[in-house]
């Protein structure tokens, strides 16, 4: 509205156009979907740096390829569906990064391309875009290529630190454990100079980024806490029953994709529950499934399957954990 008609000599006469709108009339500035995605990217930096160091050009080209593929597939799909563009929210970049970081360095380029495209398309676009998807898109992409190209998904080597060129072929710590009963030193697991997927090798990098993410409130700390709690309890119980000095509960916590998964994959807000209890449940569920898969199945690692399984349970978990309102009592019927 244009105010102050006929009141030229009041200070309000030069007043600007005023607007009306519903309350609240102010919003918190530093929160937006873009800002949250930017936070995830910042938090991933330590992981990315380590992967550059361990896997060199494998890491660089996989990360670039996956991000470009994810962003282009999303842009293209929205274009074809005649929907407003959504790539500016940054979520496709995050999906690309996480998908690439979950790939072994030696995966062929077409595996990356197909997986990234499948992740965005099957994992996100077909559900109706960001916020509507049930499954974590990066994990959908990874599951897709895992089924389509099982042979290409084995992590077969990383770049030697001494020469910077030679590829050292070796099993991942978890495969070595599963197939040969071999341990890996905690120091290696911490620093990341082992074989594995691009982003999973260094426990330290995952922790640093993960703490940042939780401290910013971008990821809910309850989810990683639940995962780590379940893994600690189950592996400690197993260790007490059957001690394996070369593979302690600490090894379980720091090896494989567990930390990457707990802090960066399971915490994807869209595909995890929103209630406090629901988040604990979700985290504990993932941790438990990971341990079941590690101990009982033929696979050495199970973060991806666990996340996908719990993703599908998230809506149910939310429904079963609706909190009581302040002052509410269970079973109370309103008149």
């Amino acid at each position: 509205m244009n105010n102050a008609p006929g009141k030229e000599n009041t200070p309000l006469a030069q007043a600007p156009t005023l607007s009306v709108g519903p309350s609240p009339h102010m919003v918190s500035r530093d929160l937006s979907t873009r800002r949250m995605m930017a936070d995830v990217i910042i938090a991933l930096l330590p992981v990315i740096v380590v992967s550059f160091y361990i896997f060199r050009w494998f890491a660089i080209y996989h990360l670039l390829l996956a991000v470009i593929t994810c962003v282009s597939v999303e842009a293209l799909s929205m274009r074809l569906l005649r929907r407003p563009p959504t790539i500016q929210d940054g979520s496709a970049v995050v999906t690309g990064l996480i998908f690439a970081l979950s790939l072994p360095g030696t995966a062929p380029w077409y595996v990356n391309l197909i997986g990234a495209a499948a992740g965005i398309f099957l994992g996100k676009v077909v559900f109706g875009g960001l916020g509507q998807n049930i499954f974590n898109p990066a994990m959908v992409g990874r599951a897709f290529v895992m089924i389509a190209f099982p042979a290409a998904m084995g992590a077969s080597g990383y770049v030697s630190q001494s020469t910077g060129v030679d590829i050292l072929t070796s099993a991942t710590p978890l495969t070595a454990l599963k197939q040969m009963g071999q341990g890996t030193s905690l120091m290696h697991l911490l620093m990341g100079d082992t074989n594995g997927s691009l982003g999973e090798t260094s426990a330290l990098a995952c922790l640093v980024g993960g703490f940042y993410l939780c401290a910013r409130g971008t990821a809910s700390w309850r989810i990683p806490a639940g995962v780590l709690l379940a893994v600690t309890i189950i592996s400690s119980a197993a260790y007490l029953i059957h001690p394996t000095p070369h593979w302690t509960p600490l090894h379980h916590l720091s090896a494989g994709a567990l930390l990457l998964g707990a802090f960066f994959i399971a915490t994807d807000p869209v595909t995890s529950p929103v209630t406090r209890k629901g988040r604990w449940t979700f985290g504990i569920g993932i941790g438990t499934l990971v341990m079941l898969i590690r101990y009982l199945s033929g696979y050495p690692e199970g973060v991806m399957f666990s996340v996908l399984l719990m993703n599908s349970a998230a809506p149910l978990v939310d429904r079963l954990t609706v909190p009581l309102p302040l002052g509410g009592s269970p079973g109370k019927r309103k008149p």
Binding site: H25, G131, P269, V274
Partner: peptide, 30 residues
């Protein structure tokens, strides 16, 4: 102006900030 200006509404990303902040303990997004 800068107080009341809003970016366009986007889809709920289920970040649960609304849940964590609600003083009454509700699940506003749902």
């Amino acid at each position: 102006r800068e107080d009341v200006e809003r970016e366009a509404e986007t889809e709920c990303i289920r970040c649960a900030r609304c849940v964590d902040v609600c003083p009454t303990g509700l699940v506003p997004t749902k």
